[in-house]
Write a protein that binds this DNA or RNA. Structure first.
Length: 809
DNA sequence: ACCTGTGGCCTGCTTC
DNA sequence: GAAGCAGGCCAC
């Protein structure tokens, strides 16, 4: 390999070549072929001479070459490599299972499953260039149901680039010849670009484009472009940023564009009638086209506002991964980073053809709140980058683990049932550090993962400094900001990847050591606070919520933890370094602590900066934050939270508020968006397990799945990831009855169900906890008249008699 | 060419 | 009405 860097925008596997795509100085697309390598590694020391000569003569092996401590084996084809190294070739003589040829020889092969493109990216000094990016949207024949989307003729396309320039075309006639011409124009246009972004592209635009192109007999190297689903990327980066559930209810482009861009809204053309617009011709057809161009342009504006695609690009550049839909995937980019690092250091990693599902391991400590309800002056401290800093501090890495050291408590503290066993190694050996409740790790040689994290943190610091020097909002500032963020994301992902069975770096012992250390740190911190007269009232993973302390005393406590407590504790465990830091993050002037992972609070200060009267409350876990709650539920809950945070602690106010909302929900004027529910299918609508009831009937599936089955029959997209919107029309029967939102007609909703199940409980829990003296459930929980059928109550709602209205409650 | 992790709350369905 | 399970989404 040449040490000279190899700038590329893309690379793909074609035949027996890897095609590296780059751009010449004049902007021409430049393709260069490199031989695809079907490679695996053996540890040289593992291979006896006799076996070596036998292997070298094996016709499937193309070459055999020494590479440091390793032997690099190249096969003729990917299939040869896979067959020789995966466990499916030979039935094991004694225990029935299967084994590979190398298993038979008693040899372990390394990195055999590394995909040829990844091999290329690892072995060559590739540098991912900024791709020429465009935003694509296509409109296809709306008469064809989603399930057969590949059969839909493409009616128009639009491509927009970052400068706002756009190109597009309309189908001239309903013929294959016209569609072929349309598509050829599109591909000619795409040739100027490397990365194609489309909203929901992986589920719609890309497969449709591919299928239509093939059907029309146009030959295109589809892999030559980086296909990026902008929607999926947006979700992965935006979900935890969203304030309220409103932003999570729908990911339709128009809705997201409105949320992100404010006033900018999508054209109000009915996307399910594209064919009608096209066939009508004239102005209607032009309108379809404008709508198409507008959608593509919305992607550009969303990216301009969020910079998510640019952020992903930086992450990919750091991790030597291609910036397409898969590029931002955790296992993928961590693998890209570590394989590269391993190659530079002469380390090769295990083969991971068959990823067996690993056992679950114990995770974080979540403390049951010792006080619930309306509290004041609660201070929160949290560990900065807890898991990465633990990995560094204990030198946690698959190759640094010392499983031979098993520590057993000393005789005095050992539980009685273990006293008959001899302690294995105690005290702690000098060359080892210990994770209490976890494994031991060597302390002499820094591990691969800790070094990777150290490097990523160093770079993050560098870009943070660059950001601080730049003028906020300038391109330099955004660039530094994205780089800093990308390094943080990368560092934080290592823990998850170590715990992921699908990853070749999976090692449950290391992942569970990380969480064990976390549990131990947070417990020690809370105990130390309590020992100093404070009250630990809650904590989750890396945070502690402390009451009965002043701001100054708490700040002093946090400083003491960093200066004295952790250094001492960690030295006792022989940690080679100490990266553990806790920070005083905020004080809640008021907090309603409803339960684990559910609270709402008003800041007194955040990192020392005083909150102002109009500072928004921080809400966690409550229905307000959820995209699958009813809008009315979110609105009422938020009104209550706002009011409590505003200082109104008089229960009577909330009784009035509850009564007002109850009347609105049961008998007021509402629109469907107030009560429509929206849930994602986690799998295809047909793939949910169909249980049988005891009497042999099919059991009902969850409401959104039942609705999805109806939509599926109508030809809608009900695959995994599809969002199902529905309205409950009868919540009294079991199972309840729900209809697709498109079937909704005024008055069909079950208002009693809406109040009793969807809206009130969410707020009741908050009020119950803030004002326990009031009998909330009794006062407001029940609105459905006894023995009323949904039909009769619906009838009454349409023409409510005044005396009946009065008697409802 | 599916694939970062665990803890936790809440809802709906069925059974007891 | 409680218990057990599946499913979804959220906190870290």
């Amino acid at each position: 390999m040449s040490p000279k860097s190899l700038p590329i925008v893309n690379a793909y596997w074609s035949g027996d070549s890897i095609i590296a795509v780059s751009r010449t100085v004049t902007g021409e697309r430049n393709l260069k072929a490199y031989p695809a390598e079907y490679t695996c590694f053996l540890k040289a020391a593992d291979v006896p001479a006799a076996v070596a000569s036998k292997l070298r003569a094996w016709p499937r092996i193309r070459s055999w070459e020494a590479d440091g401590d390793w032997i690099r084996l190249r096969f003729h084809t990917w299939r040869d490599l896979k067959e020789a190294t995966s466990k499916s070739q030979y039935e094991h003589p004694t225990y029935g299972g299967y084994e590979s040829m190398f298993d038979r020889l008693g040899l372990t092969v390394y990195e055999a499953d590394v995909y040829p493109v990844r091999r290329f990216l690892t072995e060559y000094a590739v540098e991912i260039q900024k791709p020429r990016r465009c935003y694509l949207d296509i409109e296809a024949d709306s008469r064809v149901p989603f399930g057969r989307k590949e059969d839909a003729r493409i009616l128009s396309w639009a491509v927009v680039d970052d400068t706002g320039e756009w190109v597009g075309d309309l189908l001239s006639a309903d013929t294959d010849a016209a569609e072929t011409a349309l598509l050829k124009d599109l591909w000619e246009c795409l040739d100027q670009y490397d990365q194609v972004c489309a909203w929901n592209g992986d589920r719609y635009d890309f497969p449709v484009l591919k299928a239509r192109t093939e059907l029309m007999g146009i030959r295109v190297a589809f892999a030559g472009w980086l296909w990026l689903d902008h929607l999926e990327l947006f979700k992965s980066m935006n979900m935890h940023v969203s304030e309220s559930g409103d932003e999570k209810q729908s990911f339709a482009l128009g809705r997201i564009a409105t949320a992100v861009l404010g006033g900018e809204t999508k054209d109000d053309l009915d996307g399910s009638k594209t064919w009608d617009y096209w066939v009508a011709g004239g102005e209607d057809r032009e309108r379809l086209f404008r709508y198409n161009v507008r959608d593509a342009d919305l992607l550009r504006m969303i990216e301009k506002e969020t910079g998510y695609i640019d952020t992903q690009l930086v992450l990919c550049q750091v991790c030597h991964t291609l910036p397409d839909s898969r590029g931002g995937n955790g296992t993928n980019f961590v693998e890209g980073y570590l394989l590269k690092m391993g190659r530079a250091e002469g380390l090769r990693f295990r083969t991971n053809w068959d990823m067996d599902s690993g056992a679950r391991f114990e995770g974080a400590f979540v403390m049951e709140p010792t006080r619930k309800g309306l509290l004041h002056s609660v201070h929160v401290a949290d560990f900065s980058g807890m898991y990465p800093s633990i990995i560094q501090t204990w030198n946690i890495s698959p190759e640094t683990i010392r499983d031979d050291v098993v520590l057993v408590e000393d005789a005095a503290t050992r539980p009685a049932y273990l006293r008959h066993l001899p302690p294995k190694t105690y005290p702690l050996p000098d060359d080892v550090c210990q994770v209490p409740g976890g494994s031991c790790f060597r302390r002499d040689t820094p591990g691969l993962i800790p070094r990777a994290i150290a490097e990523l943190k160093r770079l993050r610091k560098y870009w943070n400094a660059a950001k601080a020097k730049a003028v906020p909002g300038t391109p330099e500032w955004h660039d530094a900001d994205r780089k800093s963020n990308a390094y943080k994301v990368a560092a934080n992902t290592f823990y998850g990847v170590m715990g992921a069975p699908a990853s070749r770096f999976y090692d449950q012992r290391t992942a569970s050591a990380v969480t064990a250390a976390g549990r131990w740190l947070i417990r020690h911190t809370i105990a130390a606070a309590e020992a100093r007269g404070m009250s630990g009232i809650y904590g989750d993973t890396d945070s502690v919520f402390i009451a009965d302390v002043t701001e100054g005393a708490f700040r002093a406590f946090v400083d003491w933890c960093n200066a004295e407590l952790y250094p001492k504790l960690l030295a006792d465990l022989h940690c080679p370094t100490n990266e553990i830091r806790i920070a005083y993050e905020k004080e809640f002037a008021t907090i309603v602590l409803v339960g684990k992972k559910r609270y709402a609070g008003r800041f007194a200060h955040y990192k020392g900066t005083r909150a102002t009267a109009d500072s928004k409350p921080e809400v966690k876990g409550l229905e307000y934050k959820r995209g699958d709650s009813a809008k009315l539920a979110r609105d009422l809950q938020f009104e209550v939270i706002q009011s409590i945070m505003g200082g109104d602690e008089d229960p009577a106010s909330y009784e009035a508020m509850a009564a007002r909302w109850r009347d609105l929900v049961v008998a007021g004027t509402l629109t469907r968006r107030d009560f429509v529910l929206s849930k994602t299918l986690s799998r295809d609508s047909t793939a949910y397990a169909q249980k049988k009831k005891k009497n042999g009937d099919d059991a009902a599936q969850p409401p959104h799945v039942e609705v999805a089955k109806i939509l599926c029959a109508r030809g809608y997209d009900t695959g995994a990831g599809a969002r199902i919107e529905y309205v409950v029309v009868d919540g009294w029967s079991s199972p309840l009855k729900a209809i697709p939102v498109e079937d909704y007609t005024d008055g069909a909703e079950d208002r009693y169900y809406l109040w009793e199940q969807l809206v009130w409980p969410a707020t009741e829990r908050v009020l119950e906890c803030a004002f326990p003296a009031v009998r909330w459930a009794e006062k407001f929980g029940k609105v459905r008249p006894k023995k009323a059928t949904a039909a009769s109550t619906a009838a009454r709602r349409r023409r409510p008699a005044p005396e009946e209205q009065g008697k409802l409650f």
